[in-house]
């Protein structure tokens, strides 16, 4: 076995550690691994081109952009903010914990496209989170605002990841079942999917605690800030 192609992994780790542009890191890593494995440049270019064309699907998220853009220009985010601010008893923690639970539940039934960073987080969840934080914690500064938005995106990821694999027709479950079947172990997809349930509950508990923790942290920061320093 040749260990030289591992140089590509080194390029990935080193490139990200040095904070080089990710596009550059990824392409350099591919070229490094390919050349280290003894591929000729024309073959390597064809492999790169073929792989890129067969992986275009994730880019189709851009089809949502005209709608999101139009609605934003018409004030979607402003309205989301105003609406959340008018709800009594709505806090950052309650908003994000509710979203987390719903996202997990809906993903468990396979409806993973019902939400996402382009469809729901940027136009709805992020501005609503900022509004809820502004209302109950005091007016945030730019860095705190970014932390709240990042937490909203993280909440969507956690909800999706630790919900979808409880769904029996999900790719991960079928991948596990197929792998075992090829190796002579026959399993029911349901038997695999159910094992994802305890971790799903743990993920809810851990992330809900983290949301509350960030909320408490922001409250302390804002309480320590002198009144006249507000913006």
């Amino acid at each position: 076995m040749s260990y030289w192609p591992l140089l590509g992994v080194g390029v990935v780790v080193g490139g990200f550690a040095l904070r080089l542009n990710p596009m550059l890191v990824v392409v350099s890593a591919g070229l490094t691994s390919g050349l280290a494995a003894g591929l000729r440049l024309p073959d390597l270019l064809a492999l790169l081109g073929d792989s890129f064309l067969s992986s275009r699907a994730p880019l189709l998220v851009i089809l949502t952009l005209p709608i999101v853009g139009l609605l934003e220009e018409a004030g979607l985010r402003e309205h989301g903010r105003a609406w959340i601010a008018s709800l009594r008893g709505m806090t950052l923690g309650r908003l994000l914990c509710t979203y987390l639970g719903l996202r997990q539940l809906v993903s468990m039934f396979g409806l993973t496209t019902l939400a996402g960073h382009a469809q729901t987080v940027r136009p709805l969840l992020a501005p609503m989170s900022e509004a809820a934080a502004d209302k109950t914690l005091g007016s945030l500064d730019a860095a705190q605002r970014e932390r709240v938005r990042a937490l909203a995106a993280a909440t969507d990821n956690v909800g999706l990841f630790f919900g979808e694999d409880v769904f029996i027709a999900f790719g991960a479950v079928l991948l596990i079942q197929g792998f075992y079947a090829r190796n002579g172990i026959v399993l029911d997809p349901m038997a695999i999917a159910l094992w994802a349930l305890p971790t799903a509950l743990a993920a809810y508990a851990v992330h809900a605690w983290r949301i509350r923790h960030v909320e408490r942290h922001l409250r302390r920061e804002l309480a320590a800030r002198p009144e006249d320093g507000g913006d």
Binding site: G8, V26, G30, S33, A36, L48, S51, F52
Partner: peptide, 13 residues
């Protein structure tokens, strides 16, 4: 898409 392409190169090598 680029990362998926890198995954293919890693698999091929």
């Amino acid at each position: 898409a680029l990362l998926a392409a890198l995954g293919n190169v890693f698999a091929a090598t």
